[in-house]
Amino acid sequence: MATVRGCNLPDDLYYNIDNNVWARREADGSLTVGMTAYACSLAGEIVSYTPKKAGKEIEQNKSVCTVESGKWVGPVKAPVTGEILATNPDVAAKPGTINADPYGSGWLVKMKPSNWDGDSAGLATGAAVATGFEAKMNGDGFAGC
C-alpha cells in the first residue's frame, strides 16, 4: 500500500501515471480498470459516467469512458489494448461511487487485454508507484488529497 501526499495508491496495481488510471489483473486474466484517488481529487465529485459499450475493442491510451465533474468532461484512457467486457451499472446509477471507492466499487470497466505482457511493460507497479506519482504531483503543483 502506497500513500503519496495523502492519496491512496495501492502498489499491487498497475498504473499509467500520465493518464492517472489503474488496472488490476484478475485471476482469470481479465483486467479491472479505474481512476486513481489522485485523479478523483483533481476532478472533484463526479456527476456523470458514460462508458464505451461492452464488446468494443479499445486501443491502449484511448478512451474507455467519459466522466464529468464541475462541468469538466474528459476521457479515462485504457491502460492496455483490449476488449471491454463489462461496464459498472452501480457507477452509472451513482457516479460519486468513483470518488468514494476508486479501487473497489467505483471501478469503471472490465477488459480482456489482447497483449498484456507487451502493453503492461510501460505501466508502473510496486515501488515505482510512489516515486512516479510523487514526481507527477510535484510537476502538477499538487498539495495533497
Binding site: 481529487s41 483533481l42 476532478a43 472533484g44 465533474s69 464541475g70 462541468k71 469538466w72 510537476g139 502538477d140 503543483g141 499538487f142
Partner: peptide, 14 residues
C-alpha cells in the same frame, strides 16, 4: 495545458 494555467485541479483552473 494544466501547467500553463498553473494548476492541475479542475476547480482552480475554472
Amino acid at each position: 495545458d494544466r501547467d500553463a494555467v498553473g494548476s492541475a485541479q479542475m476547480e482552480h483552473i475554472a
